[in-house]
Amino acid sequence: MTWSFIGWILIGLSAVLLIGFSFFFKNRGRYTVREVPGIQQLLSARAAALEKGNKLHLGIGQRMWSGLYPGSGLYSLSILPKYLDGEIRNSGAMRVSSGDGVLTVLARQIIQNQYGDRYSFLLDQNPVKSDLPAPTPASSTAGLLNLLSFEKVSSLTLVGNYGLESVLFSEALHTNAGAFFSAVGNLTSQAALYPSKKDLLIGENIFLLPVAFSGKDSAQPAWTTEDILRIVVIFIMVAAVVLKLVGLL
């Protein structure tokens, strides 16, 4: 048995658990949602900004694909429709940006679908926008900093892939007395933000975000599966260490 084979077993197990729990939670009770202070902070900042008619901004990442943080691009796109609730759609007081053309195009499509599900996107005078401040990470950083300044954004949420530059966004919001929230999957960003922001989502906690927005429980099977997988992986690692110690591996 190779490590690769063990990996395939994990993938298979994940798929089976995911499907199983999806059926289970469809018919039965709820999986207890972990409380994350940062998410509550984000939701209240978002609500306050909307109430005051201020601008919101959602950064969905500097790039779509990342090996070290797999799925983070997809994850940020999956958050977008949940972030776009009715109030935001109607007010249009939000802008979505990324540093990757692919993300921008897909985000735009998602936004249009969200409007399309309810009423004509074209009829809306002030819809939520999806923009590409610039095509490379560094230029995108400069572009986004400008946007934050000119539009007086009062709530910035970063998800997906961002690097060291996220600390610049954080400080820009700090200067504007705005709320900054990060659910960035990138370790570099998390380390850079840790000294200046209290309620960061770190590690796999970032995957809790969609449920917090949607208020639905559709991600609960994923959480359950993830928790089980984590235990399985810990068990495998401990077992591997023990086997290595006794010379069987």
Binding site: G71, Q190, I202, E204, I206, A222, L229
Partner: peptide, 13 residues
Amino acid sequence: ILIGMALGGLIVG
């Protein structure tokens, strides 16, 4: 942390 992230990514995929 990355292992946790990888599991989350696997589930998203």
